[in-house]
Amino acid sequence: MNLLRGPLIFLGLLAAWQALVSLTGVESFILPAPFAVAKALAARWDLLAEHAGVTILEILLGLAFGSLLGAASALLIAAFRPARDWLLPVLVVSQAVPVFALAPLLVLWFGYGLASKVVMATLIIYFPVTAAFYDGLKRTDPGWLDLARTMGGGRLAVLRVIRIPAALPALASGLRVATAVAPIGAVVGEWVGSSAGLGYLMLHANARLQIDLMFAALFVLAVFAVLLYFAVDRALRLALPWQAEQS
């Protein structure tokens, strides 16, 4: 039953969609029927795949850079007091700036290509990863720290042997959030200014009233986002086998 639940929910949503279109008789340039979208998906597969490749690359690069930068910042803040005192307030205040509002600037600075979208995705991922990992590094079991103290461990040794591994589940939570929001960064970047990608394709299909193609692009994006999330979640579980059994 658990295996069937996903496909059943999917089919149920398709049926509801079809029923809505059939019962209301809504125009196909407002809401196309699922079958029309499937046809567009099949007919324009080459185009969709080409643009999807661009968006996927943006998402994966943004995820990689954002995660690395976030994890490195959290380590820096946790390991060095001056870094914590000077960097943490800047980090918190920077979150008051809506990242989406920066999108036009990023396009201006980094151009219409891949770079501005990767920066956008990186920025949007950076904070959840930093916050989650830093939080984990702060919350080391005080009993472990006492033990390490009687054992004569230096600060960096304690960080490496105890605090970092103990914070990995928290980092994993941050990476899950990052995986969920990364596609948002990439697509918003594409909407503001781009020459390729699913966001670009959707804008253009919309302008030409090719709503079936727009839905097809949305569908591809959603499928990729879901698959990416499950892949990351699975990889994190495999990487931290002790975590599930612990709590």
Partner: peptide, 22 residues
Amino acid sequence: QDLLLPWASVLGNVLLGPRLRG
């Protein structure tokens, strides 16, 4: 509390002190 590190093996836990001191 045993204060064992959940990610480390039995041997790894017994060697915690030496590990911290390299």
